[in-house]
Nucleic acid binder design. Structure first.
Length: 320
DNA sequence: CATCAGGGCCCTG
DNA sequence: CAGGGCCCTGAT
């Protein structure tokens, strides 16, 4: 599908603002639904039953940093619609987040202070809707990055829509309810294994209207946790990702998986294996910003790697 | 070649 | 509440 219509709008982010570290996370695995080249991110978006292409650029207007968002579509879009895309973009990428208190309060820790200096103005956030993130969360389970990427690619290639916009060809996620009348075996053929059942069940719950992302956003963390955990195939590890990336709770940090334990041990203490309580003692120092603090430290190492800096323990553990 | 451990979760006992 | 089973892939 060729997206021949486009509209551009401007977003004023809170300051300080780091464009690249906000729109590009080197630790997120790359698939053909988004692309980042020379400081420009492109991505697709399934929004209110339209398949969109989005492009972001940093614009300087009267010396002020602004985000220029261009929305590509296959039909003329109303002003209200563009406004809704803009609002959702601001939400997903936390462009209204005020980081000043966090920065002030965290300057005491040397590692965090260095991470903040390096990535100052970076926002946490994720491009995906809850539905899409649940699918990603499920294919992350019990699999290496390489295999997760392969699974997501297989799904996108088979069920996604190919969009052409701004000289790019990217795939857009399928509609919610796509797996309503699809058997488990068809998904298993895409090498997702036992995860096929979880994907189908979650898709069904969305299309039955049992789950609404915007309702969930208004609920308390505990309620969100309870509802997410009740989904088939979603456990504590997946909920932990969701609460941060999709629901923007900076204070929740309760889960450390074995591979993360190894990486945190090196990052925080420069040693092979710290105990889980040791790691939590360090993390809990950051109080209501503990997950945000770890995000800054985590991203710092990924950006170092992206810029060519090699740590043996890091390479060994991430197995790209 | 065979065996095995993963970036979890569900289900059973 | 502990532990076996599940898929596929790459490492050994």
């Amino acid at each position: 599908m060729k997206l021949l219509f486009s509209k551009t709008t401007l977003i004023t982010p809170t300051l300080p603002f780091n464009f690249d570290a906000t729109f590009f996370k080197p630790d997120h695995f790359t698939t053909n639904d988004h692309e980042y080249k020379k400081g420009t991110p492109w991505q697709t978006m399934d929004w209110r039953s339209n398949k969109l292409g989005l492009k972001f650029r940093l614009a300087k207007i009267k010396g002020k940093s602004m985000v220029e968002l261009t929305v590509f579509s296959n039909e003329e879009l109303t002003k209200e619609y563009i406004e809704s895309v803009k609002a959702e973009t601001i939400f997903r990428y936390n462009l209204n987040l005020d980081l000043r208190e966090f920065y002030k309060f965290s300057a005491k820790d040397d590692l965090l202070a260095r991470s903040i200096r390096q990535l100052k103005g970076m926002r946490p956030g994720h491009q995906s809707s809850l539905y899409e993130y649940l699918i990603i969360g499920i294919i992350l389970q019990n699999a290496s990055v390489r295999r997760s990427v392969q699974m997501f690619r297989n799904l996108l290639t088979k069920y996604g829509t190919k969009l052409e916009f701004d000289g790019h060809k990217l795939l857009c996620l399928w509609d919610v309810g796509r797996f309503k009348s699809i058997g488990e075996q068809e998904l298993r053929d895409l090498k997702v294994g036992y995860r096929a059942r979880s994907i189908i069940k979650i898709d069904n719950q969305f299309s039955d209207g049992n789950l609404d992302e915007f309702d969930l956003r208004k609920k308390s963390v505990d309620e969100q946790k309870k509802i997410l955990l009740s989904l088939y195939g979603v456990g504590p590890a997946t909920v932990w990702y969701l609460l941060f990336d999709v629901f923007h709770h900076w204070e929740v940090f309760e889960h450390i998986s074995p591979w993360e334990q190894k990486l945190y041990s090196q990052m925080f203490f420069g040693k092979n294996l710290a105990t889980i309580p040791q790691l939590f003692r360090y993390i809990n120092k950051f109080g209501k910003y503990k997950h945000l603090a770890v995000h800054y430290i985590w991203e710092k190492y990924w950006w170092d790697r992206y810029n060519g800096k090699i740590y043996d323990w890091f390479e060994k553990e991430i197995r790209l």
